[in-house]
Every structure is written in structure tokens, then in C-alpha cells.
Design a protein around this nucleic acid. Structure first.
Ligand SMILES: [Mn+2]
Ligand SMILES: [Mn+2]
Ligand SMILES: [Zn+2]
Ligand SMILES: [Zn+2]
Lengths: 149, 149
DNA sequence: CTCTTTTTGAAATTGAATTTCAATTTCATT
DNA sequence: AATGAAATTGAAATTCAATTTCAAAAAGAG
């Protein structure tokens, strides 16, 4: 995201454009993955050690409100954030062995969810769907260990 | 569950059969819904005010390990427990208006999840799937309020 | 009953999430 | 550029569920 677009967005919200917000936004939007606040703060602090954890916390909340970040709570309980990509949506496959997270999109799944919800008279706004298991390599390791003993 | 069956189960685990465990089990298994520890403790304390929160906590963890309880973490963050029913599985529809939780089972959904996971080389052990939206009555209330202003 | 082990429950601890508040910064206005 | 109200920052404090600690009580094997 261009600095100007960010300033506009911030200003439209009646907020002020600060160095901290710009830095956090820049680092966060250019990152990938699902990071905890501690991880994001560590990254940000590398660039600018003066930026406090609290500011990172508040800025990520802000970005979530603006639709630029998505807050995720997987089974480990710690809140994680990932940058969003306009109008897209995905769910997650999570490896219980190595922690790898694979993203997937499945229109059939989405429409099936809608159908189920409608069947119960619900109108759905969002959902949470995570599949926990073992990725190829981890499943393989588990199997070979079992054979040996 | 019969008291004898419980004693057997407990004994097989090398654990001791206590009044507290029996009471908590009895109350919990005869309840329905998705209760927080505080709620379960409140119920248990009505029968026997001497039973401590910690014991309820530990007993619910135990029941979860034995497969008699399921631990759920919905969006509000607080851990909830529900009694399980042998070999069944269900997911949840949650109303953002009134908090109502509706359970559903959908074989098509389950097999679709497996198919998606296989497609990414994963072997799934469990999943989490919650649909958040508005139930019939709540959706209706929202609409009529909007019309009025 | 006796002894050893487990369990209990109150209190303490943990750790992430959130709030507080004084100092600092932004920015609209002069 | 200076002013000043309002927003922001960041360290510290607080919150609150989850978990651990530990001394006293209870279970149950022998
Ligand atoms: Mn993702
Ligand atoms: Mn349920
Ligand atoms: Zn793996
Ligand atoms: Zn409702």
C-alpha cells in the first residue's frame, strides 16, 4: 500500500497519521503468514526499537477494523494476524506435527455452509473453519517411527 | 452413566473414585449445552458448596481425556464444555444476536473436508467449524429496526 | 487399621489481552 | 512559525481465565 493511500484511509477515519502507524503498516503488509503480536512487535522493533508493544497491539486492532488485517485464533490460543487480500477469503489446514499452515479456498465448501445455515434459518456473516491433521512429510515420519517400534 | 461404570473407568486409569468426581460427572453428563467452567462450578456448588473450582477444572480436563466431555473454544474466547455422545460429531451455528447455539451434522460437509485435506496431502484428525450469523428471530429484529430508522 | 499415593481446594502464579495515564505528537487554526 | 485542543504513544498497571503449587484430607491396597 502506498503511503498516500494510507494517509487518506487514516484521515477518513478521523485518525492521525503517525510514524509508528506507517512503519507497522509497512512491515505488516509486506509480510506473509500468521504472526502473533509478539512476533510482529519483534519485527517492528528491529526497524525501530522505540515502538512499543502496545502501539503494535493497537495498530493491528486498527488494521483489522479497516479490513487490512485478519485476526485468527487457532487451537494454540494465541491471537495471530495476517494481511488480507481484497475480497478474498480462505480457510486453513494446520499440521499437528510441524505446525505448517496451508491455506485453501473452496467454493463448494462455502456454498455448502450457506445451505446448511439457511436450512436452520440462519443468515451467516462469517465462519471459522480449520482442519487439523498431519501434512505429508509428518504423516510419513509418524508411520515409519511406528514400524520401527 | 451408572456409578459402577464410572468407577470402572476411573479405576482402569489408575485413578481414585471420589465423591467430588462422581458429583461433577453426574451433574455434567445430565446437563446440556455449552457451559463455561464458572457455570459448571456454579451448578456443582449448588449441590455441594464445598467442591472447589479447581476440582471442577481438573475433572472436566479428565472427562475430556476420557472422551466424556468435549472442550470448545468459540469466538468469545472462554473455554466451554459439552457432554459427548459416543461416536457422534457435530458442528455449530452461533447467533451473533442472542448467542443461541444450534448444532448440526452434515456428512457432505465432513466428506468434503476430507477431500480438501487429501488434496493437500493432509491426513485430518479433527476440525473446527463454526458458522456465525443471525438466527431467524434476530435477523428479523435487525431488519425491522433498520426500517424504522 | 496403617501406610502410601492420590486428590482436594485455597491461594499463588502465569501470560496474553487490555486499560490507564502522563508525556509527546499531530494538525487545524491563527 | 506559533498555539492549543485532541489524538497518540509507551511503560506500567490491570484484568481475567487458565494453570500450578502445596499442605491437608481422602482413597484404597495390604
Ligand atoms: Mn491465512
Ligand atoms: Mn455442541
Ligand atoms: Zn507437518
Ligand atoms: Zn439469535
Amino acid at each position: 500500500m502506498k503511503p498516500d493511500r494510507f494517509k487518506t484511509l487514516i484521515s477518513e477515519e478521523g485518525l492521525k497519521s503517525t510514524r509508528q502507524r506507517a512503519e507497522i503498516l509497512d512491515i505488516f503488509l509486506n509480510s506473509t503468514g500468521h504472526k502473533s503480536l509478539a512476533e510482529i512487535h519483534a519485527w517492528v522493533a528491529k526497524m525501530d526499537p522505540k515502538i512499543g508493544y502496545t502501539t503494535v497491539y493497537r495498530t493491528l486492532k486498527l488494521l483489522t477494523r479497516l479490513g487490512l488485517a485478519a485476526e485468527r485464533k487457532f487451537a494454540d490460543g494465541e491471537t495471530r494476524y495476517e494481511p488480507t487480500h481484497e475480497g478474498t477469503h480462505h480457510d486453513h489446514l494446520i499440521c499437528l506435527g510441524c505446525g505448517k499452515i496451508v491455506e485453501f479456498e473452496d467454493d463448494g465448501l462455502e456454498s455448502l455452509q450457506d445451505r446448511i445455515a439457511r436450512g436452520h434459518g440462519f443468515k451467516i456473516f462469517h465462519h471459522r473453519m480449520e482442519l487439523y491433521g498431519y501434512c505429508g512429510p509428518c504423516a510419513h515420519k509418524k508411520t515409519s517411527h511406528r514400524r520401527k517400534g
